[in-house]
Design a protein around this nucleic acid. Structure first.
Lengths: 321, 321
DNA sequence: GGATTGCGGCCAGGAACTGGCCGCAATGCT
DNA sequence: AGCATTGCGGCCAGTTCCTGGCCGCAATCC
């Protein structure tokens, strides 16, 4: 075995178990103890913090150091990471979407086919719940677009614009933007010879087309502002304001960080800015306490509708409390 | 620079951008083109699939190969992975909890302190929404326990059993089990000299105590059956059965894979087995269609209560539809 | 105090790496 | 068709660096 391969194996061993007696390591790597000590030294010189304990039951241990060592993952771990990133990219953790997609692209691009098949098998199981009714974004499409952006590779896909027939597009992808609960692709449309932003949930049948292109300059400050200027219906258009008769902690727990909650007398005031009223409705269901809607009126409509549905299903409408 | 360090850098370069002209790589690594070609060869011998394109604008590219190469992550990517795994471990993706914790343990254990601080800062932002009211499990505690299990290190923690005073425990951790929406630690209690299962959400102030122990044999087939036999209140005790007047696809999308949906006439029948009725209630809110509850009666109570809350908040109860 | 385990200097032999040279094979442009 | 570009890999000579074995030393536990 070559030295570099051995170093990788050593790193991998140190990542699985915690303490390794030097003798065991040298045996596993099939080198003399002296060489093992030298290998450990080499790792240290590379900046990885390898601790050593002397005396009886001593051994080596990879500590958290100055930098993250190359992660050597088991198959299952890699799949778990991809699944976790997929939910994060879908907006389960706000603020992390872009980075999650970036990491997801890296991981999936390097995955051997067998792992990718596992992941596809899991997809049907995982991705279809959408946290309040936003459009479903296919993680596979998302990573493909991200790859195109990263590597400057042209893409083709079918785009179904709002109330229009599907059209075939050929673009130079520039950047992915997560805005509100939606993903947008900013790209240069080769046929139309102009910049466009595409809603990712309306993109179908995307594929890399091979070759590379020279990146153009976007005629805007950055991709985010470009997308924002192009959207007519601004997302997060509902400013939800509700007074809830429940302690602030309970409401805070239900809403997470997608809204702000301030105490007000015995209850609290909840403020959220959302694109879709399904979400505040679910929060209110979750809390289960009485509340009063200060706005918007559409939310009141939703609540009335839900009240109708529930009372028809449950029997006597104003029932026990 | 040593050869192994150079190989790692090369791998890292190949992971960031997609196509690399050989000349650029050899320049960055400060070796001759000939050596670069040899390095590429070495990578291939290690099993990583490096593609090459010849001719003008040719170059190298790391393809998905037989095995997953060591992941060289940017700081932000590592944090994104940890965050994604945390939500997955908390039960956002059922079936992946154990593996997610395993991967999370590996990643966080290797993280340099600065990244762990970032992660802690994000924790307050992310972990507090609990998908239907289950108890909150602290991801930091979870990974600590997982580490103890993996490395056979004894643990100390404070345990607050059901309606009892907190007690100090000293255990040999054996396995973590995710059951329903809860986490359990199976461990040998050193003071009581017997096996116990602990609910992780009732564990506080856990810390590794140093040293290692020789693993004992668990007096049960596996950890899962041990936990199950010890739980009096079986989780998932409600068998929810509802007829919904909405197409099967819509209901399926709302419920994800936490229940089964079969078509029935114009509507469908929804079946879920849950521990907590909050969850089916949210699904029904999400669907928004009329429905009839076939069981359990407690769900009907919940629905009536929600109907009351909503109608008081929304104005006229049987409102528009 | 003794046993165990890691540390690192020293040394000699040898394995492996390096850079330079070559002709060859794809690939894409003109 | 011809040409430039870029990767491929054999060969070679020089040299670096890696290895295993030996040693005395230091820390740690019993």
């Amino acid at each position: 075995m070559t030295t570099s391969a051995r170093m990788l194996r050593l790193l991998s061993l140190l990542q699985t178990h915690r303490y390794w007696p030097g003798a065991e390591l040298s045996e596993r790597l099939d080198v003399s103890p002296r060489t093992l000590r030298r290998d450990i030294d080499r790792l240290r010189e590379l900046g990885y913090a390898v601790d050593a304990m002397r005396g009886v039951s001593g051994g080596y241990q990879l500590r958290a150091g100055g930098q993250l060592p190359p992660l050597l993952l088991e198959d299952e771990e890699a799949v778990a990471i991809a699944v976790g990133l997929r939910t994060a990219a879908a907006g389960a953790v706000s603020g992390m979407e872009e980075t999650s997609v970036q990491a997801l692209t890296k991981v999936t691009a390097l995955m051997p086919p067998r792992l990718r098949r596992q992941l596809d098998a899991l997809r049907t199981q995982t991705e279809n719940f959408t946290w309040g009714g936003g459009p479903v974004v296919d993680a596979a499409v998302l990573t493909l677009l991200a790859q195109g952006c990263r590597d400057d590779e042209p893409l083709r896909f079918t785009y179904t614009a709002r109330e229009a027939e599907p059209t075939e597009r050929w673009v130079e992808p520039h950047r992915l933007v997560s805005l509100g609960r939606r993903w947008y692709l900013v790209a240069y449309d080769r046929d139309r010879q102009d910049w466009r932003s595409f809603r990712v949930d309306r993109i179908a049948d995307a594929r890399l087309f091979g070759g590379r292109f020279r990146p153009r300059d976007l005629p805007a400050e950055d991709a985010l502002t470009f997308v924002q200027s192009g959207i007519r219906r601004m997302p997060q258009r509902y400013a939800v304001r509700v007074r809830v008769e429940a302690p602030v902690e309970r409401v805070q727990q239900a809403v997470g960080h997608w809204g702000s909650v301030v105490a007000d007398g015995a209850g609290c005031r909840l403020a959220m800015n959302v694109d879709d009223l399904q979400w505040p409705l679910m929060v209110l269901t979750q809390v289960g306490a009485d509340f009063r809607i200060d706005g918007p009126p559409e939310l009141a409509d939703q609540v009335r509708r839900a009240a109708g549905t529930f009372s028809r299903a449950g029997g006597h409408p104003g029932g026990d409390r």
